[in-house]
Amino acid sequence: MSSYQPTSKPSSRRQVNSSESSEASQASSSQYSWGSSTGSSNLSPGDALSESVDPTIHPTTLIHAHRLDAPAKLEDLAQKISLIKELLDQRLPPLSTPVSQYLLVVHIPKPLFSDIESQPNIFKGVRATLFPNRHQVLYKIMPDEQHDQIIAFFHDGLGKKLGDMGLSSFGGDFLFRNSTRTRGLSNSKEPDLWFGPYNVNVNGGGRGRYPSLVLEVGFSESSSQLRNDAHWWFTNSSEQTRLVVLIHANRGSSSGDNSSPWAVDIEVWTEVPNPSSHQTRDRPTNSLKCTQSARVKDGSVTGAPLILDFETLMRRPPVNPLEGNVVLDAGWIRIVCAEVGP
């Protein structure tokens, strides 16, 4: 499906800056904590999400996110997203003030929310977390070229690694899905990239709803939210998604130093036992943690290689001599992150 195009554009960059700077000022002055609000908050729990204590959404995301209240039609959403994309493009290095890549949409009329639910991927380069009980949506927005390049290189690079083992998507071994909406316990979410073994995800019944690996991409200011997203995939898949890769790009110095290099952090999150083996409703036996990380800065890679466990990825043990853990070496990581930067 083609992406939705807004029917109107902002009249000037000055209009964009004025509108968004006002919102950023309001958000920065607010106070938000888990389940409580003080002062004159732009995003109080009552006005934001009924799941305000749900770890799906990090408090800092709610504080700094752009906000759209009671949009009347899809064109309102499209125009707001276009404004934020333009603002993100303007605020690439040198930076003055970081700009949130999240848009929180609240009080959505029921007919419009139904349209949003029925048309996934309507906005190009935008990922949505939907909260049906309150008719609210949290959108993640990134500049198209960098976002798409990271996803494309990761997709192709992982496919080649598996191809070297004699596996292929055309051979019915695995499949990729771009931003496929997945339903969780109380909401639904779109990842940047969805991967799973073909036989499980096509013939596996209910298990096929959940990927074995998810890729989530964002800016460094969104790292807390991305890490919450990793937990979301584990808990909302009944612990079937046990491999999440996070890539977040550091957009450089806020001092205006145009020579400040970009840095890209890659984290691999996998299932690990909780320190205590005593399981309760609030403390399950296992959880998802960052177990490996690497950084790309000024062309150099530290922390490589990163290892993706074959059995976790394919949901089966290796069956031929070529199959084994996927090794993401420094060269592979450098290529995936090659297009990140000003």
Rank of each mutant, 00 (worst) to 15 (best):
F310C: 00
K73Q: 13
P55E: 04
F131S: 02
N203G: 05
S18V: 06
W34V: 11
T56P: 02
G157L: 10
S28F: 04
Q146V: 06
A304D: 08
G341S: 08
Q15K: 13
Q149M: 12
P10F: 09
D257L: 13
W262L: 01
F176I: 00
A128R: 13
S8Q: 15
L246V: 03
T280Q: 04
L83K: 14
G184P: 04
W194V: 00
P261N: 11
N133Y: 02
P111N: 09
N199L: 09
Q101C: 12
T291E: 11
F176S: 03
H147Y: 12
G196S: 12
S36P: 03
S253V: 06
L77M: 11
G324W: 02
L62G: 07
E221D: 15
T129W: 00
Y32E: 06
A128S: 11
I108K: 14
Q149T: 07
N121L: 12
E239P: 00
K161G: 01
G125A: 08
S222C: 06
D69W: 10
P98D: 08
W332E: 03
I63A: 08
A48E: 09
E271L: 00
S40W: 10
D54W: 11
G341V: 07
H64I: 02
S168L: 08
F310M: 04
S237E: 03
T182V: 15
D329H: 07
E271R: 07
V296R: 13
Y32I: 13
A230Y: 00
L243E: 04
E86L: 11
Q31G: 01
K73R: 15
M1R: 10
K73V: 07
T56I: 05
N320K: 14
I333R: 12
S300D: 04
P10H: 12
D76L: 06
G341E: 12
S237P: 00
R283N: 04
N203M: 11
G39R: 15
S100E: 10
